[in-house]
Design a binder for these strands. Structure first.
Lengths: 417, 417
DNA sequence: AATGTTTGTGCGAGCCTCAAACTAACAAGA
DNA sequence: TCTTGTTAGTTTGAGGCTCGCACAAACATT
């Protein structure tokens, strides 16, 4: 792996150091001509992601700019082997010079994606085309792991993955199954793994591997994975919703990943849907998590006498329903309704209008998604311009790692205006 | 009122006509040099709003740009009398040439603010400094009003207000007490005033008065009023929450007013906080409106035997509590808690961290706001970087009209990047 | 009166996009 | 086969904008 300049996709601005010494910014500061260059380069690349292989002329038409502009932006990217020209496309019957579609080079620098869970770490390389390779995993010691164990496990895993990279990765993106401070790039807390509390993983990775590193929590990573590599491709506004043992969500609003202060927001699991309802693990009452998690589903399954209730999930529930179990059908409907309640609230609050479902629901397939969609539509007062649509995310393992890589991509493509 | 070029604050771009003929945009299209000019002009003006009167050198320092850049931006604005130079400020003891603070000229073109309620219309002029003048009102006929009556009432009212304008206003902003389609600039529906349903007010105003006209619903107008003229001045992310006979909210996220598809979003009143709870006016059960409106408060007041329960509101509730009524104190606490539930959900979902309270709560003053704030803080799981703060908005009449004017201002200052 | 400091203004350089002209590569038809 | 029409991509010069530098203006201090 030869050594390259750290950030060449969006070249050589000195990045705002964490301890930014500049005085409080005026809004965000003003634009300069060179920023226009960076921003437009990012937008062209983003358009390529959204459209798939596209010629310069087509890009120029869609953007409403001059062809020469696109050529000027694209040429350096071709030189850097970020992009390549595909084979000429037959012109229409009107004739004309064949267009050469541009697409991401397989030889472009990859991104390292990392998934940090309570019990293990997974790493891989992701190309700009969205293919995964060099997948590695490392489990943490089960008995009272020390932070040193965790650090060395992460280091080993990452080292193995990076060894497969032919070019230096653009950065490392980490999806964390817990709370994250995106500013400090640190893990705040991970349920069931107190060893990870207050763990400055971002700094560690940057120091150890000399690469930019970004952390975010799991649902937000799923969202950006969907945005660049999945069903959210090309969407300007949508939400990702994760269900399972816990609930979470993330928002992509007006072409930007939304993060609240230091990465808050999207903590949907602990919104109230049943004031003074059942006790939640957070100590409050009536959180959405009390009625829409797998834990709730298991309790209900047991109550109505479904076989092996501890192993119930959307997949089995759909199978039982299709096999004719009326009890399962009723439970599925109630579960779908309960999930839909939280989504309906999100729809009323920010109206993303498009939802990508992740987690347990994926196992239930289209059937489950349709059940939820139906309830959401019934629970949201109708409104003009408000068709609500749903999609199912990638399978769990791929989604999270693509998402982790997507965090880096978001940072590279979204020039901060 | 002499005739001027329609949009001179942000001068002479041909605006995107409503029936924009350009093909589907690439994300949003690329930046050009001239857009940099417009965007930077907008940002400088925004900074002036946020900072108050400020010299060129100071602006340049805060923005981290060259002084000449600011001079270049500001000079045309001085020529157009958008800005004026204030009197020189004494230099510090270090000496130096006295700075000349820039501020909005009282002779700058004003904005026409309009508030459309079920029973009446109110109009006024708002200067860029935020002062209100030429206030006019017109009531609609009480018995079965026809749309023609409403149109002529609005025209008369607007004409009287505009007659007082020394320069042609920059535009007309309308706050509507009901549902709005911001794209079509039309009223969709107003509770209790079916005559207003599907009323294309924006087009009518533009045709009749030759001015740009913008509509938005009431809570969103309150938010932008706060942003430019009120407690939200200079904030990058915050929320406005309206309580009273109905509930509503609006979001300012990352320096931009947030609108969902065709102006949805912020319809907090019909988020679920009590699944299968009391029947709501919308036909669903357990909406936030069933536990946090004045209607709920009146029912509770009657139930516990408070004097004149039909006239209860935050103001009286606080007064009774301070006078020592334990029943009122308990009711106040419950009311504050119920309001806090919806805010806590909003905090968990988008984490704006700063809330400006409008509507009934304003009458209860700091006491009421503190009660709500306390409950919100208790209802939100604690989290790093998450101090939640509250402010009380302007009194109802001023807030809505300033907000309506703020809609126009947002459009002028936020150059769409 | 001299010195130091800060504000605001010309001037040329650099970066970026745009318009127009030009070359390259194809289809269709005489 | 040759001409015409069409589309893709490149070259070149013009115009906008910001930046750095130098300079005049206006103040405080000594």
């Amino acid at each position: 792996m030869e050594r390259e300049h750290p950030a060449q996709l969006w070249p050589t601005e000195e990045e705002d150091a964490p301890g930014d010494s500049k005085p409080a910014r005026l809004g965000r500061s003003l634009l300069s001509s060179s920023m226009v260059g960076s921003a437009n380069r990012g937008r062209v690349l983003q358009a390529l992601f959204d459209l798939g292989p596209t010629s310069r002329a087509e890009l120029a038409r869609l953007a409403g700019v001059n062809r020469t502009t696109i050529s000027g932006i694209v040429q350096p990217l071709l030189d850097q082997q970020v992009l390549v020209e595909g084979r000429p496309i037959r012109p229409s019957e009107a004739g004309g010079k064949p267009a050469r579609p541009l697409w991401f080079s397989p030889d472009a620098r990859p991104i390292c994606g990392m998934l940090l869970m309570p019990d293990a770490v997974h790493t891989c390389l992701v190309t700009l085309e969205g293919s995964i390779s060099a997948l590695e995993s490392e489990r943490f010691p089960e008995e009272r792991p020390q932070i040193a164990d965790v650090r060395s496990a992460i280091e080993r895993c990452t080292t193995r993955t990076l060894a497969s990279a032919r070019r230096e990765p653009l950065g490392i993106g980490v999806a964390v199954g817990g709370m994250v401070d995106t500013d400090r790039r640190a893990v705040i807390a991970v349920n069931l793994a107190p060893v990870l509390n207050d763990f400055e993983l971002g700094d560690m990775l940057t120091k150890r591997f000399g690469l930019p590193a970004l952390l975010d929590h799991h649902p937000r990573a799923l969202l950006v994975g969907d945005r660049w590599f999945g069903k959210g491709r090309g969407q300007q506004t949508f939400a990702a919703v994760y269900t399972g043992e816990v609930l979470g969500g993330a928002l992509y609003l007006g072409g930007h990943l939304y993060r609240g202060q230091s990465g808050a927001g999207g903590e949907l699991g602990h919104t109230f849907v049943q004031v003074d309802g059942d006790l939640c693990s957070c100590g409050r009452r009536g959180c959405w998590e009390t009625i829409a998690t797998l834990g709730w589903l298991r309790r209900q399954a047991r109550a109505i006498g479904i076989d092996d209730p501890d192993a119930i999930d959307s997949g089995r529930l759909v199978a039982l329903t299709k096999a004719g179990s009326s009890g399962a059908a009723a439970l599925l409907d109630l579960y779908a309704r309960n999930v839909a309640v939280g989504i309906a609230n999100l729809q009323q609050t920010v109206a993303p209008n498009f939802y990508i479902l992740h987690g347990d629901v994926v196992g239930g397939g289209e059937f489950m998604a349709e059940a939820i969609a139906g309830h959401v539509r019934a629970l949201v007062p109708s409104r003009s311009g408000g068709e609500i649509s749903f999609a199912i995310g990638e399978t769990e393992d791929r989604a999270a790692l693509l998402g982790a890589a997507g965090l880096v991509l978001s940072e590279l493509l979204q020039f901060p205006l």
